[in-house]
Design a protein around this nucleic acid. Sequence first.
RNA 1: GCCCGAGUGGCGGAACGGUAGACGCAGGGGACUCAAAAUCCCCCGCCGCAAGGUGUGUCGGUUCGAGUCCGACCUCGGGCACCA
Length: 911
Amino acid sequence: MSRYDPAAMERHWQDAWDQAQVFTARRDPAKPKYYVLEMFPYPSGRIHMGHVRNYTMGDVVARTKAAQGFSVLHPMGWDAFGMPAENAAMERGGHPKDWTYGNIADMRAQMKPLGLSIDWSREFATCDPEYYGQQQAMFIDMLAAGLVYRKNAVVNWDPVDMTVLANEQVIDGRGWRSNAPVERRELTQWFFKISDYSAELLAALDGLKDWPEKVRLMQANWIGQSRGLEFAFATRGAPAGFETLPVYTTRPDTLMGASFAAISPDHPLARALEAGDPVIAAFVADCRRVGTSAEALETAEKKGMDTGIRVVHPLDPTWELPVYIANFILMDYGTGAIFGCPAHDARDLEFARKYGLPVVSVFEPETAESGYLPVEGAGPAYVPMKSERVRYVKGFAGGDLQTGEAAIAAAIAHAEAQGYGKGVTNYRLRDWGVSRQRYWGCPIPVVHCPACGVVPEAKANLPIRLPDDVTFDQPGNPLDRHPTWRHTTCPQCGAEARRETDTMDTFVDSSWYFARFTAPHATTPTVMEDADYWMNVDQYIGGIEHAILHLLYSRFFARAMHKTGHLPAKAIEPFNALFTQGMVTHEIYRGAIVTSDSGTFPDNSPIGPQLRTKYYLPEEVLRFEIAGTPHAILKSALAARGVSEADTSAVVAVYQNAKNFSSLQNAGEESEVIFVDSSAKMSKSKKNVVDPMSIIASYGADTARWFVLSDSPPERDVEWTASGAEATFKHLNRVWGLSVRVADMADGAGVGPGDDDLRRAAARAVAEVTAGINGFAFNKAIAKLYEFTNTLARSDAGKPAMQAAMRVLAQLMAPMTPHIAEAVWAAMGGTGLVAQADWPVADAALLVDDTVILPIQINGKRRAEISVPKDMPIAEVEKIALANEDVARFLTGQPVKKLIVVPGRIINVVI
RNA sequence: GCCCGAGUGGCGGAACGGUAGACGCAGGGGACUCAAAAUCCCCCGCCGCAAGGUGUGUCGGUUCGAGUCCGACCUCGGGCACCA
């Protein structure tokens, strides 16, 4: 083989790895273990460049760790339940199961050519009954442990499709598929008690040192701890049972600024009032009609209704506040009731203005901090505080007016001392609703028995399998209308009973798959021995889009699995290190029609962004560089975009009837200018998708792998460019050509003049590439590989030294480009497979140079440099530095005030 | 609104407080070739013939020395958001 032929080469070495079973994970007590995991894919049917980047990064880690002597687990599976399969069945017919398994087969076939070091014997899909049956078993255990419960919850209900919709599926208050107005409906749903772990999930974030700070922050914000005061108002004129009204506030220091109380439309008191008052009933119904989506809430106007009930201020029995029902109060945070302090809360202010309520500042205006709402803007409603109230604000801390944290803490202390309230820690995190009225998910393994109530399935009956004979020709849950499936018997009393027809949220499936990989075919959810050996995941890699939900649910699940005996204690934080990789982007090409005489569109509107709506595929675009004076049309096109003429990358091509602008000489001639419209995540609608399969077909997997690692730091987005891929391919060709050249060298004299230099370069490359990989700086590791290759290409070392250096190159390249690395390794006389070779270790002695070059600065500006032996005493160095003629020239006889020598680094002369 | 993060050549990006721009792309020049492709060699922040000056979003500070540390600001990106 003399030409670089990736297709043949890659197939050959993949077969060799398979035969040697190199990637089979084995529990080996003699070795330390290393578990590398990339977030498993949804089987959409096609792999994309994002997958390539994600799995290549994991593969680099897995292959490096294996070479470094670890027993590596690097598995792959499929997050296979979910709506797209059902949507496909509804749109195109067929069965979700066939669609899913067909896609899995397709994607597996696309992934294999990438040469990933995956142990495919551990593969599973979450829609395998062997998997979801074990999930059902854990559900039953969690139910027994009190981690699962049922409650009524308000959901988005699509009345046409007859299903619950996620907030993201509600667009402008309508169902995304049916376009029907969404209703807020109260349904009985299953919940995981993740809120039991709010404090722990928050506190444990501190221990996740190898997680990105950003992700930890996002999770902390999501959990949303707050410290505040809970107290109860005494009510006047409320129905029986509502003698007090508990409220929660994070701003107890503003209690003296209260001007109203408000309750949620879903508050028990509101419900009680609604029963006897049609006006209130109508108002509450109106509030509920608004969806629960973020958009709906954002645009909704603040509305309230005075209930006529009054509450007594806890610190002033003569002071009464009105109680409103208000649409902006959430039932499931705090107590579902608040006191309103318009002077120090934007929402309360808006509400107070609308309903003419007083605005009372509890801080003297001249000492108000910028963080508080300006009272001046509050309008005529500003009410000065009574002197006894000022005394309260000042009084709770010995007379000094306090603000911020100190004031809040003092107010809580005051309330506790006086006995009217207590400090409470609240969390934003709510319990995880998992019921879905869908077919393609894991059936919830419970039975509704008329006699016994809700009864968990007997484990012997698991898995509760999804029936195959279902139809998608009508809306609603196919499980619900299946003729027989839901008819069953009660596992407890044996009477006729109804099976639960809801399935679990697909996030449940992905909350424990990492644990299942440690014993993927076991007849229990996990096997303690295996979990104990392989857990935790040492390195988890995936997209930042899973920073909150998936990772938080997994952290909860690991705790629940420990509590129910399915994971060891050490696995409650399942991911030791997390890396969130960036996306793969590509330029977007958009076209504009240009006429040669006017520089305007045919309708005479100036060339501008408003008409550039058509997207072009990369292959439809001819890159056109601006050389010399741009044509007038091009000038105006550029000007219209606000782009400098010097920026040659702004316009890439002329499409259709002109090859370039200079051919556009005839008046009235039309052409189409194509602009680069920034770079964005690859998507079909933007026509900027590059298919990994076509890249592998033209360049091979090694090129695709190298490129996605090379151009940008892994956590940042990388832009796929044709020229970059081409350049990578050329580089790999160069490496292969070098290998052929070295193999062809005459055997004769074994020693060359460059032997020592090459050995040093190899040692340096080992140190630097290893550091790059260990530090997740693959782009830097690759830069060092380029440098080492350049050194090799220019070396005049003898054959044995060249071969040895090339073997080092092969080893260092192997994690990134494993196929060509094997070929070079074999050609250079390496033993066995490079995939099984030990990682090279740099000889420390070769890493230190005997002489060092020291730059000399004068007053911080670099003026000269000297070369000195590395161990030369500082006094010597100083002498040589001052004797240097360039230094003398700049000193011009002035006395040296100070001389700083940083050994091995730099010299600074201060004059 | 609240909370984070980032600003370095034409581009992607390097740089324990110590020679700013490694490495790659794009660009320029040359060799080889009948020619082209491929390959190889050299140049490549900006101003300047040069000496040199200048330069890491802006302004200020600390330091012998600042892209890096501190303060203020500007711009862009991300997350959360009727959470009381």
